[in-house]
Structure formats: structure tokens, C-alpha cells
């Protein structure tokens, strides 16, 4: 699905990612953990194609194509979805309107007909239910005046609507209370399928109690310094990140 090799990224001349390798197979869920400022969002943004990051080395291939050469909207239409750490507000634009444009842009890209109003509404209602959201939510402006939790839930709702091949969730758990976390996790789990991959960016292992990952990676010093199964997350929780950063064997094990 996704293969990242020796990825090096700088921001304003500062190296953030430094030779990062990561491979995510179809149907797999990978968690990426790491201390604040370690470059998790940078990785997520580079995968999605945000401006402002200079890729100075390495490659990212997605379903066999060179992802880095595609415009952000092309990546999205190919099935790359980013749930933002800080979703932006777009005043005056109804949620449902953005969704419809988004869904149809992807369908058009795939050579499918646009959804008519009835089918679209049917799909929307189904996904609202999945995330336990009220219909009035559709008519509010995108993220405007949403609580932190509502914004995160909205991201997962959009993901459910768009049914991406690769979903990158950037700290979707932060700002959620335990009930909301369960709902969001339920939404993600419902989308797990053999041809869909998920990258969960988080720095708490709490989320991983609800979305059980196939692999857990620790990002530090610009690369993956440690990989393991879900037990690694528990270990990290017990020991703190200092343990990974200071233990030379951890680095060599990566």
C-alpha cells in the first residue's frame, strides 16, 4: 500500500525527518508514536502533500505510484485521507456542501457518476449514524464553532464518507473524552478492511486500546527508532519516551 524509503524532510532549513523508512501493507493498522515535536505531523502532512515541507531525499510510493509527484487533490482522489490534527474552520460553507464536492470529486476521478441527491443523503445518514452525529450537524459551517471533540469526530465522519485506501489520523484522539473516543474508534474500526490501511499518529497509548494496531513505531530523531506490536505501546507508556531516545540498543533495533 504505502512504502516510504529514506525520507528526509526539512522545514525552513531545519531537518525534521531524517532518512525515515516505513512500509504499511494493505489492511494493516500502524501506530506512530513519538514525543511532541518529533515530526509525526510533518510525516502526515508530507504524505498528504502540504506545502512548506521540502523533501530533500527519499521516496514515498503509494499503490505503486510516486506519491510525492502528485498534487494534494490528486492524492486525495487516489484515496489518501488525512484527519487533521487541527481541522480548519471555513465560515459560511455548510459541512454537507464540502462533503458533496469531496465525494463527487473522488467519484469523478474514478470515472463514476456523481451521486444524486437521494443517494448522497442516504450515504450521509448511514455515516452519521455510525458516528452518532445529529443531522443538523450537516448544515453547520465546516468546523466553525465546533468543540475540539466535534472537530475530530467530523474528521472521522468525512473519512467514513470518502472511504479512502489510506487514512492518516493525526492525533485524532486528543481532545476527546472517553465516550467520544469510543465512538470515533468504532468509526475507524468499522472501516477496517483488507484493502484499506490506517496510520494512527498519537502520543498516548489510550487510543490503541480501542483501535488495536498491527504494528507500533516510535518516531524520534527524524526516523523510526523502534518498531513492534501493540505491546510496544504499553512499554512506552510505562517507561516514557526518554527510554527510547536514550537507549542505544533501541535505535539499533530499528
Amino acid at each position: 500500500m504505502l512504502k516510504i524509503s529514506k525520507l528526509t524532510v526539512t522545514v525552513d532549513g531545519k531537518t525534521i525527518l531524517n532518512g525515515l523508512d516505513l512500509e504499511v501493507g494493505p489492511g494493516e493498522v500502524h501506530a506512530i508514536m513519538g514525543p511532541n515535536g518529533s515530526g509525526k505531523s510533518t510525516l502526515a502532512n508530507v504524505i498528504a502533500g502540504r506545502e512548506g515541507y521540502q523533501v530533500t531525499g527519499g521516496s514515498v510510493s503509494f499503490l505503486g505510484q510516486d506519491l510525492l509527484s502528485l498534487a494534494p487533490e490528486k492524492r486525495a482522489r487516489e484515496g489518501v485521507f488525512l484527519a487533521f490534527q487541527y481541522p480548519v474552520e471555513i465560515p459560511g460553507v455548510a459541512n454537507v456542501y464540502l462533503l458533496k464536492e469531496a465525494v463527487n470529486a473522488t467519484r469523478q476521478h474514478r470515472g463514476e457518476e456523481k451521486l444524486d441527491a437521494m443517494d448522497f443523503l442516504k450515504l450521509v445518514r448511514e455515516k452519521l449514524k455510525l458516528l452518532q452525529m445529529k443531522e443538523e450537524f450537516l448544515y453547520r459551517s465546516v468546523n466553525e464553532g465546533f468543540s475540539g471533540g466535534e472537530k475530530k469526530r467530523n474528521e472521522i465522519f468525512q473519512m467514513a464518507m470518502l472511504e479512502p485506501r489510506l487514512a492518516v489520523l493525526d492525533e485524532t484522539d486528543s481532545g476527546l473524552d472517553i465516550d467520544a473516543l469510543k465512538v470515533v474508534a468504532g468509526g475507524v474500526n468499522a472501516l477496517r478492511s483488507p484493502d484499506r490501511s490506517v496510520i494512527l499518529v498519537t502520543h498516548y497509548q489510550r487510543l490503541l486500546d480501542y483501535i488495536v494496531p498491527d504494528r507500533v513505531h516510535v518516531l524520534a530523531g527524524g526516523r523510526i527508532v523502534r518498531s513492534g506490536d501493540k505491546r510496544l505501546a504499553l512499554e512506552l507508556e510505562a517507561q516514557g519516551y526518554g527510554w527510547v531516545e536514550s537507549d542505544p540498543s533501541a535505535v539499533s533495533a530499528a
Binding site: R77, E101, A105, Q158
Partner: peptide, 19 residues
């Protein structure tokens, strides 16, 4: 944000401006 959802840059601009 809009482009990440699949909108072209022009569509994104017009969406934001219409809002």
C-alpha cells in the same frame, strides 16, 4: 484542507469565497 478532500484549487477557492 479542501484540496486534501479532493477539491481542485479553483473549486476550493470558489467554495471558500462563496462561504
Amino acid at each position: 484542507y479542501c484540496r486534501q478532500r479532493g477539491l481542485s484549487e479553483e473549486d476550493a477557492v470558489s467554495l471558500i469565497v462563496n462561504g
